[in-house]
Amino acid sequence: MSKQQLDYLDELEAEAIHILREVAGQFEKPALLFSGGKDSITLVRLAEKAFRPGKFPFPLVHIDTGHNFEETIIYRDNMIKRIGEKLIVGYVQDDIDNGRVVEQKGKNASRNQLQTVTLLNTIAKHQFDACIGGARRDEEKARAKERIFSVRDEFGQWDPKRQRPELWNIYNGKIHKGENVRVFPISNWTELDVWNYIRREKIELPTIYFAHERDVITRNGQLMAASPFLNMDDEDVVERRNVRFRTVGDMTCTAAVESYAFEIDNIIDEISASRVSERGARMDDKVSEAAMEDRKKGGYF
């Protein structure tokens, strides 16, 4: 706050790098949860800024629902090759096969819920004490309440009523065995900040973020990618439309938006003008007003 003041993107970047280095300094076995989405891709760039020319002091962990956009997996594997860091994949399919979770049935079946179990199993198996995630407070009202270092109990649960005070930029990462901390370095970024940063840093993204032609069906007023993972019936009409995705998750719960934004500049213009929030395109948040809070209490990201 002196006369020389950082521009907001530099300030957000510096804060995120500081948080990542605190994770490195405070934990024995951290991990970076990598979804293949733009937020976790941004985290990878921030980790490069925090730790290069050294190695990352953590592996990347991907919870694979098996219902991925192919483009995300291609992107992920290329990225891992480029950065030369370790990738650990937890497969939801494994937990279905060994009976730990049961696949949902019906038209709106999705593996989104199931991935919490796989996430918690993966954390337990590798004894991760901190998991870095790309969640942002502007995404959703339960997220808006979460600390940057967010302690989860041994069942992975978030207790919003008993959050630790978090003062200045001092983060308390002390935990008991079995507990772990979810760390959100880009808590204070908005969707637009992330896009502006991606543009500034010239970060490459999976192609599904940009407008492309795709077969979609309209469900509950939203455009869903037609795929073998989506349970379809005679009522569903497949159409070919120009779309892109604003968030990237499981194919069965991520809706597309009609778009002709082929370049990042178009996307930034589109978002600046858009009157719908990014999670407006997430079926998983529509279930109820407290959908996100409930999932977080259960161990979700």
Partner: peptide, 18 residues
């Protein structure tokens, strides 16, 4: 943003808005 807050109509914890 929390269920308990909406139920009681009070603010329990900090919410950040942008």
């Amino acid at each position: 943003g929390l269920k308990a807050e909406r139920e009681q109509g009070i603010t329990i914890d900090v919410a950040y808005k942008y």
